[in-house]
Design a protein around this nucleic acid. Sequence first.
RNA 1: GGAGAGUUGACCGAGCGGCCGAAGGUGACAGUCUUGAAAACUGUUGAGGCGUAACCCGUCUCCAUGGGUUCGAAUCCCAUACUCUCCGCCA
Length: 423
Amino acid sequence: MIDLKLLRATPDIVRESQRSRGDDPAVVDEVLAADAANRAALQEFETARAEQKLLGKDVARAQGEEKQALLARTKELAARVKELQATADAASARAVELARSLGNIPEAGVPAGGADDFVVLRHEGAARDFAAEGITVKDHLELGEGLQAIDMERGAKVSGARFYFLTGIGARLELAVLNAAMQVAIEAGFSPMITPTLVRPEVMAGTGFLGKHADEIYRLERDDLYLVGTSEVALAGYHSDEFVDLSAGPRRYAGWSACYRREAGSAGRDTRGIIRVHQFHKVEMFSYCRPEDAAAEHARFLATEERMLQALELPYRVIDTAAGDLGSSAARKFDCEAWLPSQERWMEVTSTSNCTTYQARRLAIRERREGGSEPVATINGTIGTTRWLVALLENHQQADGSVHVPEVLRPYLGGLEVLEPVR
RNA sequence: GGAGAGUUGACCGAGCGGCCGAAGGUGACAGUCUUGAAAACUGUUGAGGCGUAACCCGUCUCCAUGGGUUCGAAUCCCAUACUCUCCGCCA
């Protein structure tokens, strides 16, 4: 949720924000109207309620006939108070609902436009020239099947499309990537966490995932719980309704969890292999910091992600996502995209968002500061996922279908330097 | 799954339908004392709206959550969630 005081004082900033996101700027005026109506209704209710409380005290003191007379009077008032309260509650609910529908305000410098209007910040690492090496590129699934690492058919048999088994070396490789990711995060000062993957509606709503992309999320209706699409949700909820002390610096957590996505609306996209699946694992970095430190913390996240990509010897580029492609919570988002040789395109492997105070306002996460309490800022970012296996297999493939293992992963694979196909 | 107990402020804990945003204690902060610290003593110390852009001040809301009864609810009633104990079942 954005700051209502900011909205009242400078609605133009918010209108511009809506426009840059490709959302309707007229919502701002709806919010303003609802907010004004809410405050008017609140005033009326409060006046009546104050009178009622005052009269109530007289009732308590009065005796006999006088008391009866007072009771008659106060009964009427009670009915009126009740009505006014209902009106005020409804007005408040409407104002909050509208205000919550506004996306976060993009940071200065965020490119305008939609999904295709990102700015490439830089390229790191060189993609291999497979033709020059005399290698016919295999895609990750072909490689994975050769290694007996990925079994899509049985995944479909057991659970349906977009499910898979990681088998043998595939399972080991995923564990290696996630363990290495956890290690990089720990070295960067993040505290490891294994988080719940089912969360309550308030937490899911608080993180901003129940807006436009609600149909991406699995819901367990019988239990009124949601399956998380990332441990960001649980980590944001971790300090909800709390005051956190950030005087010693940001609170940094690295969450390991399974992630679930319905992939509604992506029919036909990335249907082959494990690029886009309903369930995967991820190590996610998350931090709570002071708003004035958020941009620096965000940069730190990006640097940590890049360290991981470099350790895995993957060529990648960094993009600055355009306003229209930010999630509702993010004020700025940097993605790292690894090169995907089989498709000769870039594939997102990390995404880090600065959510400023947007999530913290919704989840009531504040810090006591001089002069009162202030919402904190939240930052999240990927440090490793199952999808990284795709980039690893393809970029490190060799002519015979074997796959080179980057050094950082070897300790987690019993020292293996090469993954050999099973014949 | 069954039975029971509970949920009050940063924490512990009291609370009679009206004088309760809530006793008392702990903690924290400030002061006195002290060379300094500790101890002791004194004082301060919840959050969020609105009136105001901000202070002071005023006012409303908040005693797990949501309803209800009542002129009036932390207190009575109902539902739900969560915690704990016991029994059963089970990875």
